[in-house]
């Protein structure tokens, strides 16, 4: 459902992405892995619409998304869980969630989505009137994901969710993501620095290095590959 073709992205005179092409099929959970500065977040920023590519196309279920404003990309069904969460810290959990469901079609099903989200992350319901800035790291990440889901997305983009979180919390969140993927058929694209974790969780994965896609394959395969093992897993 997501087709990225030959995308170049530049920040001024510095080129960050070179001819990036990949795709994500409906219902899949795909990982984009690579080391720091490889260009992963740039890919997500471009997919979310705040960064426009200099060259190439991005299509979401047949509609071009690289030519529209960021807020329109959300209406196309693409929702981003940003790096660093980027919650509205001076607003309550409820307000953050309501803002997640800002677009027209999401407002209609607000109550239903709130219920679903509270089911997945009960702690959010407990602290519903608390300010987002006062939550713990794990709770903030959960809120960020819940907020992104409120817009009823077809494609959920998750940027570096493991940053700054304890491993057990990260594991649980990924478990929940898998559930969302399977039960609600939400296509998910995760960007992760923790290569092993990402490859274990995803159906398929792409490896990005220095702004270029260098490898592609099923999660388990890549996990077993020699190249990955030596470069990213410090084995061999």
């Amino acid at each position: 459902m997501l087709e990225v073709r030959d995308v170049d992205v530049t920040y001024g005179d510095i080129q960050a992405l070179w001819g990036v092409s990949f795709s994500v099929r409906k219902g899949e959970m795909v990982a984009l892995v690579g080391s720091n500065g490889a260009g992963k977040s740039t890919v997500l920023r471009t997919l979310s619409g705040v960064q426009k590519p200099r060259k190439g196309t991005i299509t979401v279920e047949g509609t071009r998304s690289d030519t529209v404003d960021a807020h329109k990309v959300v209406e196309l069904g693409v929702s981003l869980v940003p790096e660093g969460r980027r919650l509205f810290r001076d607003m309550t959990i409820l307000e953050n969630l309501e803002l997640g469901g800002y677009i027209g079609r999401a407002r209609k099903v607000k109550e239903e989505h709130l219920e679903w989200v509270f089911q997945m992350f009960p702690v959010l319901k407990q602290r519903i009137s608390q300010l987002a800035g006062t939550l713990s790291g794990g709770e903030q990440q959960m809120l960020a994901i819940a907020r992104a889901l409120m817009s009823d997305p077809k494609l959920l983009l998750v940027d570096e969710l493991s940053l700054g979180l304890a491993p057990i919390i990260v594991k649980n969140i990924y478990k929940t993501l898998r559930e969302i993927n399977k039960s609600r058929n939400v296509t998910i694209l995760v960007v992760e620095q923790n290569v092993r974790l990402a490859l274990e969780v995803a159906d398929r994965a792409y490896v990005i290095e220095n702004g270029r896609i260098t490898m592609e394959g099923a999660g388990k395969e890549l996990l077993a590959s020699e190249a990955i093992k030596s470069a990213y897993l410090a084995i061999g």
Binding site: S48, G49, V50, D69, A70, H71, V74, E75, S79, L80, P82, R86, L87, F88, R89, D90, M91, E95, E98, L99, G100, Y102, I103, A106, R107, R147, A148, S151
Partner: peptide, 24 residues
Amino acid sequence: TYFGKAIRAVSQDYEAASWMGINT
């Protein structure tokens, strides 16, 4: 109001607001 909350969101984090589908 939704729009009022959107304005507050924009004041806190312009980019994140656009990721909510708000026309910033």
